[in-house]
């Protein structure tokens, strides 16, 4: 990140980018897309929010969690319990599910203080398996395998109806924009720099007086809260949830989404989510052949653009500018 003369403009650019894309997304219902597209777009945005939390964790702190979907599921279940057993509205249960996600995220982080690297990734995988069994067996709370149902009824948020297809999509867009803006702010804050220095060299950071464990737990807690928020949005989107949906499979989906888009890009998860959700619908082969083609495309994309599809834009730009002698920005 060079700070040249146009540094102020450059610093504002990402926020502008998020807002602009948010605006475009917000205007999507105006071009009267099919409900099918709106429904998929809602799913994509929810995945993008959840994956953004994971991307932040991964990109900034270098830690990777396969329990992210489990925390996402915990958020969804908390929201369901809030609605069903406590009779709370969407808005009232939001802080609760985000709060529970915060705590769950922090708990997932605790083992990272003892193990690291691949072992930690694998450990979070095991943790998420345990959580999904608990979700399946703790029937009084989660409804067991049958799952639970939550209906928004006539509730509104920001003057938009939760039960309306386009309205709910717009609500999700608003949340997505806020989450991406907050993450952008954090990445560019002193704390973000501190996190990256911790990622590059934890021992040095410790000797500089940075409390590495505490900061690590905080990042996890934050990503947990985002995952749980996305979980609640997911619940109100699909209306009915069951533990099957939150197995480590979904964590892997989130990971895939981050990697497809590019983990070092703020908007990587958004790009990845759009590809992941929309691509299979438009391959146009028989169901099983679509699955094969989708798998091949994923493999090829990840092998050819390991830094995500967004890195291709940068590469393209460089090529258009022609060969350059000095190492460019």
């Amino acid at each position: 990140m060079s700070s040249g003369s146009r540094s102020r403009l450059r610093r504002a650019a990402p926020y502008g980018g998020v807002l602009l894309l948010g605006l475009i997304a917000f205007l999507l219902p105006q071009v009267s897309p099919t409900s099918f597209v709106l429904s998929l777009a809602t799913t994509a945005l929810i995945y993008a929010i959840a994956a953004a939390g994971l991307g932040f964790l991964w990109g900034q702190s270098g830690q990777l969690s396969l329990a992210h979907a489990a925390v996402f599921g915990i958020g969804a279940y908390t929201a369901a319990v809030c609605a069903k057993q406590l009779g709370l509205s969407f808005a009232a249960s939001l802080p609760i599910s985000a709060g529970v996600g915060l705590v769950a995220g922090a708990l997932v982080a605790l083992p990272s203080l003892r193990t690291s690297g691949h072992y930690f990734v694998i450990l979070t995988f095991a943790v998420s398996e345990v959580i999904s069994v608990v979700e399946m067996r703790w029937e009084s709370l989660t409804g067991g395998v049958n799952g639970v149902t939550t209906l928004p009824g006539a509730q509104t948020l920001f003057g938009l109806r939760l039960a309306g297809r386009a309205d709910y999509y717009s609500i999700v867009v608003i949340f997505a924009v806020v989450v991406f803006l907050v993450l952008c702010l954090l990445m560019r804050s002193r704390w973000g720099i501190l996190l990256r220095s911790m990622r590059e060299n934890p021992d040095l950071s410790t000797s500089l007086g940075i409390n590495v464990p505490i900061n690590r737990v905080i990042v996890f807690a934050l990503s947990g809260a985002i995952a749980a928020l996305a979980g609640q949005l997911y619940l109100y989107h699909v209306k009915s949830i069951a533990p099957e949906a939150f197995m480590s499979n979904l964590s892997i989906v989130f990971l895939l989404v981050v990697l497809l888009g590019g983990k070092s890009y703020l908007l990587g998860p958004a790009a990845g989510a759009i590809i992941y959700v929309f691509l299979p619908e438009y391959i146009g082969l028989s169901p099983v052949r679509s699955q094969i083609a989708f798998g091949v495309i994923l493999v090829v994309m990840i092998l050819t653009a390991p830094d995500g599809v967004l890195s291709l834009i940068g590469r393209l730009r460089e090529r258009l500018r022609g060969p350059r002698t000095e190492a460019g920005a």
Partner: peptide, 14 residues
């Protein structure tokens, strides 16, 4: 290696 892990997920579908 993490990319390898993700790629193996694509292989599952295939």
């Amino acid at each position: 290696p993490l990319t390898g892990f993700i790629v193996s997920l694509g292989l599952i579908l295939v």
